[in-house]
Every structure is written in structure tokens, then in C-alpha cells.
Write a protein that binds this DNA or RNA. Structure first.
Lengths: 232, 232
DNA sequence: CACCGCACTTGATAAATGTCAAGGCATGAC
DNA sequence: GTCATGCCTTGACATTTATCAAGTGCGGTG
């Protein structure tokens, strides 16, 4: 692994409290691979042999049932995914595919479990990460169950704007059909929802969003830190 | 704490690998309280001072936003709740209320975190529990996003039947308005959904459900271990 | 036994969301 | 430049789900 990439991984919350020696052991057992776009890295139902870390690019987590598919999350650098399956040694509940050309680290699940037993700092970090993931999914469930699709979109845009540094204008990070699926709606409905948000001062030009009237959209969206604030 | 109750707690996955000494320290710092029905034990947004364990009775986890409320889960004896908030020392994302008269153990969050650092078996158990909770919520999200309300109800009934030992007839564990909220629908709609399931050999008499034609309802519900099997 | 009170049900209607089909508009290939 | 491809949008319509307003029926109380 290149030096720069290695230090990106080292700086992850998950690894930064780990003893050097243990980190190096983990990394020696790991692989780094570059995948082209739209490659399925993981299929739901498979056993979890590796913990995955996205170094560059982006990865979509999605699930299927009865011929239907839904987007569950997008993983962006630098972060891990499918930690829960790894620590429980259980089948994946979601599939994963690259959205673009992506560099991914694969750490054997068994080595993760061994390192957990030897390194208290790492153990603490795993617990913290898992708890955070859990809370993120709970927030997502609240979003889905308590809000209409228009409200979900409005709050999503406010969150994305925040992630883009709070600027008035920003780009959607992936295509609209995926966004629709993530928000639990159809692409057609997303289109109409964007149109409805024009009444609240949201301008849409392709993937470029402009929040022309911040107070107005917030009055409608009613963002809530117990749903929308990913740092809590 | 009475001897029998103490051993119920001791037998929890979370504590059974813990050293006696550490368990006793935890228990000495804890409280046991009996609450009447419909008491709010926890309010979302509050800081998590205690890990809760239901000994008897049952507790509902629910969330609110903008004047709306939704039921997130029901906690039954003997299990913990709000572990994630405890280990992250963060505000609760859900509120909790007793459904009936319930006996609850309260363990100070700080003591949980201390015990984590001293006891590897306990640390492993916490990780395992958190990962399981995470996976349960992911399954719930898949259920919500991939299925219609009728499909959710059908699969819920199959799961409950399984939990009741696979018998043809069983009782709903709580009232229908709560079930409706848990399944993400209105009570009116739940009523109509029950009626629709008669076509698939489901008989409803108050809270008593009879699965008269198991293959028929399963053909419709298409239960999936990656959504409905809580042991995976 | 009568009479609440409450949860549940039912029917009528409205709103939200999904489906289908067609068209527009960008992007990339040739 | 032209064409083809795919994504997105739009409109018409169907389906699902929610809302509102009465009921119904059960369990508890007096």
C-alpha cells in the first residue's frame, strides 16, 4: 500500500487509537484493490470474509427482495463498511457495488477479531463505530417513518448543503435515480418533489442545487438534530 | 436485587462472559425499580445516564417529530435497551415508555464504560450486542422500503407465529394501534390489511391470529432470512 | 344488567405515491 | 455534425395509503 493511503487508513477513527504493532500486523494481512465502476464487491447473503475500507471513489450499499431493489447508503472515502457482519461473522445484509472507479482495502475478518482481543484502544473504537452506525440507521428509520417524501428530500438537501460546507449552491453527489431510491421514492416522484420545492426557494439545474431562501426551506423541512445531525 | 432476577441478568448474552467480580461491581452500582404502565422512562434528546434492562413487563421505544409519533420497537424481558447511546455517551434517539407494569434495572452508563475497559469478555459481548442491534435495524429498514404494508403485516405475522413456537394460532403481543405504528401504517389501514389477509388463510379474532393455510400466506409474504430471521 | 369508554372497524373521500408511456436533453461514439 | 443512448422529466392514470366521520362491540363499572 502506498504511504499516503496507509496514513489515510491509520487516521480513521477505527484505527487511530490502535498500537502501531497491531496496526502493522493488520495491514500486512490486507489487500488493496482498484475496481472499475459498477462492480459488485459484495452480495447480500454471502459470509463476511473481509472488512472493507473505501480509499477513493465511492460505493453504494443496496438491498433486494422479491425483484425489488433499494439503495441503503453511499460509502465515501475514507470509511469502512459492513463492520457489523464482520464482528458477528454473519452473512451480509446488504450488497455493495462501486459507483465509480474505486480503491478498496480488504482486511480479513478473522484478523479484525484477533486484533480486537489484543488491543483495547481498537476494541473501544469498534464499539464506538458500531454504535454510531446503529444510530445512523435509527435516524434513517425515523426519517422514513415520520416524514413524507417531500419532507425527506427537503431535509436531505439541507444535510447535503451542510456537508458541502454550508454554501448556498452545491452538487448532488450521485445521480437522481439513486437518490430517489435512497429516499424511498420513485425517480418520477423525485422529479416532482424537486419542482414542489421551488415554492420554498430551492433552485434545481441538473445536479446543481441552489438554496436561494435558507430560512424558508428550513421552516418547511424542520430539520432535527435527532434525525439529521450525523455527529450526534 | 432478588436472587432470581440477578441470575436472569447474569444469563444475558451481554453479561454471561463477564468475570464475577466485575459483574458484582456493576450490580452494586445499579438500581432496580418497578414502574406502573405508561410511564415514560426515557425521553429522546436526554443524555444517557443509565443502561436499562427490562426484567418483567414490556417497554415500547418510540420517536416523535413535528407532532407525529412512531413506534420503533418493543423490548421484552430479559433484554437491554439504549446500549448505543450509553457507549457513545450521547443523547437518546428514542423515547421509552412502559406498556404494562414493568421491572427495570438501571446501570449507570459510566460503570458500563469502565467495565468495558476492564473485562474483555464484556467488551466482546457489547460489540456482539451492538452489531446485532444494528443488523436488526437494517432488516427493519429493508422491510419498510422493499415491502408494501400488506406484505409487512404478512411477514410480521409469520415472525410472530415463529416466536410463539410455530403454533397455528397465537396472540398479538400488544394492541393493534401500536402494531400499526410499528409497521408504518394507520390503524384503519391495519384493519383493512387484516381483512385482505383472510384471502390468504389468515383468521383474525381480536388479538388472536390463526394461520389456517401456512403455505398460502408464505407464498404471498415471501419471508427472507436476510429480513425476517432475527437470529441471523 | 345497563351504561360507558375505548379500541377497533367500516365506509366515503382525499392525498400521496407509483406506473406507464412519451418526449426532451445532454453526452459520447463515429 | 449526426446519431444513438440513457437519464431525466412530464402528463395521464392507477394504486396505495391516509383522513374523517360514523359505527360496532368488548370489557369494566356501578
Amino acid at each position: 500500500m502506498a504511504e499516503a493511503q496507509l496514513s489515510d487508513v491509520r487516521d480513521l477513527d477505527l484505527f487511530c487509537a490502535m498500537a502501531d504493532e497491531h496496526f502493522e500486523t493488520l495491514m500486512r494481512a490486507s489487500y488493496v484493490q482498484t475496481f472499475p465502476p459498477r462492480i459488485e464487491l459484495i452480495q447480500e447473503g454471502d459470509l463476511s470474509d473481509f472488512l472493507h475500507i473505501v480509499l477513493t471513489g465511492s460505493v453504494e450499499l443496496f438491498s433486494t427482495w422479491n425483484g425489488r431493489e433499494t439503495s441503503m447508503a453511499t460509502v465515501r472515502p475514507v470509511s469502512t463498511f459492513i463492520l457489523a457482519a464482520t464482528v458477528r461473522n454473519s452473512p451480509y445484509l446488504m450488497s455493495a457495488r462501486t459507483l465509480e472507479k474505486s480503491r478498496v482495502v480488504l482486511i480479513p475478518s478473522q484478523d479484525i477479531r484477533t486484533a480486537f482481543d489484543m488491543d483495547l484502544g481498537f476494541a473501544r473504537a469498534i464499539v464506538s463505530e458500531l454504535a454510531q452506525c446503529y444510530r445512523a440507521v435509527i435516524k434513517n428509520t425515523k426519517d422514513l417513518k415520520l416524514r413524507s417524501s417531500l419532507e425527506r428530500l427537503a431535509n436531505y438537501l439541507i444535510r447535503e448543503q451542510h456537508r458541502a460546507g454550508g454554501r448556498t449552491a452545491f452538487q448532488l453527489p450521485y445521480d437522481k435515480r439513486r437518490l430517489a431510491s435512497f429516499l424511498g421514492m420513485t425517480p418520477e416522484n423525485l422529479s416532482r418533489a424537486f419542482k414542489s420545492l421551488q415554492d420554498y426557494g430551492v433552485e434545481v439545474d441538473g445536479a446543481r442545487i441552489t438554496i436561494a431562501d435558507q430560512p424558508r426551506i428550513e421552516r418547511f423541512a424542520k430539520p432535527d438534530r435527532l434525525i439529521d445531525d450525523y455527529s450526534v
